[in-house]
Amino acid sequence: MITRDGNAFVEFARSCVPDFGPATARAAFLVAPDGFRLAEQSAADNRYMADAAEFDATRASMQHRELHRALAQKLPVVCFAGDPATPDALFPNNVFATAPGRYVVGRMRHPVRQREATRADIRDFFGNVLGYAPVDLSQQPHPCELTGALVIDRARGLGFAGLSERCDEAGARLMHDALGLRATLMIDLAPGEYHTNVVLAVLAGRAALVCPDGFADRVVVDVIEALYAPHVAQLSAGEHAGFVANAIAVSPDTVWMSAQAGRSLSDATRATLAGAGFDVGTVELDAIEAGGGSLRCCVGEVF
């Protein structure tokens, strides 16, 4: 099923038992922020990006290395070299995604990011090292920025596709099919939002963080509550701005987010996460957040 009807989605999703696959990834991949700087094309529709003068490539590299160390406490993590010609490449989850036995290459909206999809080393890693079959969406015309635009409940095979200039309806359908999901809900993001994973996180299939103001229609909040209550935190404007929703569970027991996000957490949100069985791990990423994304955006998952 792929639909815009929230009620139909909930009715179907409630019948989906958590046997679709592992709720969290078996490994992760990163791309180093080599040549990290303002990408003007990306800034055109990413209001979270800082001005060029606020980019500090050296600090971003140091923080990215600390992120690698932190995540490696929980699972194997591979880091690919960056490329100064692709300054947004440290957010690889928009370009490459995986499902068991296959990898998907997304279609990026901006030419500066379309270059990332041509990387032979990352394609060869998935294809020749892991033996995954390719599903290449990068040459078709519809934007589909993978797990930036599509938040996935891997345990039940459910997708939440936020529509914007970075993902249209046709792109959402392509991702739904490529990842073999059972059901995907298409929802319009609020004006000014560029990716779903900045305003929604589904954590190991059993909890969710949602920014009500991040969506054009609050029906998505009702859907999330219907599927994940009581482990749902509706985030405040301060938590939204602090990238709290740009979090990820790379293991069943810990949610990772940036240090800024951790400082933004309300007592109620922290209690919700604890009630769902999660510790909160944080890494200082303020230099990386100048690029308009936070911790979740940096992490590609290997399923």
Rank of each mutant, 00 (worst) to 15 (best):
M62Y: 01
M62T: 06
M62F: 01
M62H: 02
M62R: 01
M62A: 08
Q63E: 15
Q63L: 11
Q63Y: 13
H64S: 09
H64F: 15
H64K: 15
H64V: 11
R65F: 13
R65G: 11
R65M: 09
R65L: 14
E66K: 02
E66H: 03
E66M: 05
E66V: 06
E66A: 13
L67R: 08
L67Q: 05
L67F: 01
L67S: 05
L67K: 09
H68Y: 11
H68M: 11
H68Q: 13
H68L: 15
H68V: 08
H68A: 08
R69E: 07
R69A: 04
R69H: 06
R69W: 04
A70H: 11
A70L: 15
A70K: 13
A70G: 06
A70Q: 12
A70T: 13
L71H: 04
L71K: 05
A72E: 04
A72C: 01
Q73E: 15
Q73C: 07
Q73W: 08
Q73Y: 05
Q73G: 08
K74T: 09
K74D: 14
K74S: 12
K74P: 03
K74N: 08
K74E: 10
K74M: 10
L75S: 05
L75E: 08
L75H: 05
L75V: 04
L75N: 06
L75C: 03
L75W: 03
L75Q: 07
P76F: 12
P76C: 10
P76N: 15
P76W: 12
P76T: 10
P76L: 10
P76D: 12
V77N: 02
V77Y: 02
V77M: 01
V78M: 13
V78P: 00
V78Q: 09
C79T: 15
C79I: 07
C79D: 05
C79F: 02
C79G: 04
F80N: 08
F80E: 06
F80M: 10
F80P: 10
A81D: 07
A81V: 00
G82M: 08
G82R: 12
G82K: 10
G82H: 11
D83Y: 01
D83S: 04
D83Q: 04
D83L: 02
D83F: 00
D83W: 01
D83M: 03
P84Y: 05
P84G: 06
P84T: 06
P84L: 07
P84Q: 09
P84R: 09
A85Y: 03
A85R: 14
A85F: 03
A85L: 06
A85N: 05
T86D: 00
T86R: 10
T86P: 00
P87F: 00
P87L: 01
P87C: 02
D88V: 02
D88P: 06
D88E: 05
D88L: 01
D88S: 05
D88I: 02
D88H: 11
A89L: 00
L90Q: 08
L90R: 04
L90K: 00
L90W: 13
F91R: 07
F91T: 01
F91A: 07
F91H: 05
P92M: 12
P92E: 10
P92A: 14
P92N: 11
N93H: 11
N93V: 10
N93I: 13
N94W: 14
N94Y: 12
N94E: 14
N94R: 13
N94I: 08
V95Y: 09
V95L: 12
V95C: 14
V95R: 02
V95A: 14
F96A: 13
F96W: 15
F96I: 12
F96Y: 15
A97K: 01
A97I: 07
A97E: 00
